[in-house]
Design a protein around this nucleic acid. Structure first.
Lengths: 133, 133
DNA sequence: TGCCGTAGTTCAAGATATATGAACTATGGA
DNA sequence: TCCATAGTTCATATATCTTGAACTACGGCA
């Protein structure tokens, strides 16, 4: 197992951050991690809404977050301690992470049903409807 | 040609916005469009940095931006007038777009070479290096 | 009206990325 | 040493992205 790669803060890109957080599962993981003031293991964040993510997928998601520079993962015995790199990112891109987390909260608050599992656009259903009419 | 689809502002998702702006070409298009206070045609935004985007790609990029709710496209004669939907999005997700645009400016300002064409993470090169050593 | 040019869209196919079960690695404890 | 736990890596099926080629829509001109 090669040692986990963490980019230097100077190599962190906006594209990487937006891409990492454009996935609802990763956004949910990151939001929960950011809400904590301590480290969390991967398995502690395995629930996304109403379903459990397979651990291989979870590992990939963490890899994306890590390589985007959003989280830091450190082995602690048999498990992994994940923490956000909020402070560093805040310094490089002021206001970016708070704005994204806030937008996610707005959306979660406004969502009528948490199980309307929407991926990226809410438009596919609407489009089909529009096409038909 | 089916009529262009624009989602209602209530159907606009954070995931969609982040995904749309996580591509450097689309981010560049959107940033330039947001900097304007008037509509722009697609061809007017065809240059991304030092290269010209094929028009089929450009069309797809505009579709993504449109379906994410970021831009509005209206046919005006033979061409297309594109405008941002900043005001609507600002109302739904306050501060999100300004924070992203600001972060992109920070990154552009800090980039040593504009032709170090970085896609999403700046890490692939660094990772190869790390692997080798 | 028919024909041509311009501006974009759609299609198709190859390249790239994502999701996940199965196999593997690393650590700690008995 | 053997086992259990927590993650990672691999392989493969699926989905998404990129882009040249073909197509559509509109306007102008005869």
């Amino acid at each position: 197992m090669r040692p986990l790669f963490h980019p230097s803060i100077d190599d962190v890109t906006v594209e990487g951050i937006l891409h990492a957080l454009s996935d609802p599962v990763r956004a949910s993981i990151y939001a929960r991690l950011a809400g904590l003031d301590c480290a969390a293991t991967c398995t502690a964040l395995q629930q996304a809404g109403d379903r459990t993510i397979p651990k291989s997928s979870l590992s990939q998601h963490f890899r994306v977050l890590r390589e985007a520079g959003l989280v830091r993962s450190e082995r602690a015995g048999v498990e992994m301690h994940n923490t956000t790199r909020c402070a560093e990112i805040e310094q490089r891109f002021p206001g970016l992470i708070p704005a994204i987390l806030s937008a996610h909260r707005v959306q979660a608050a406004g969502a009528p049903s948490p199980r309307s599992r929407v991926r990226r656009t809410a438009t596919s259903a609407a489009k089909k409807k529009a096409k038909g009419s």
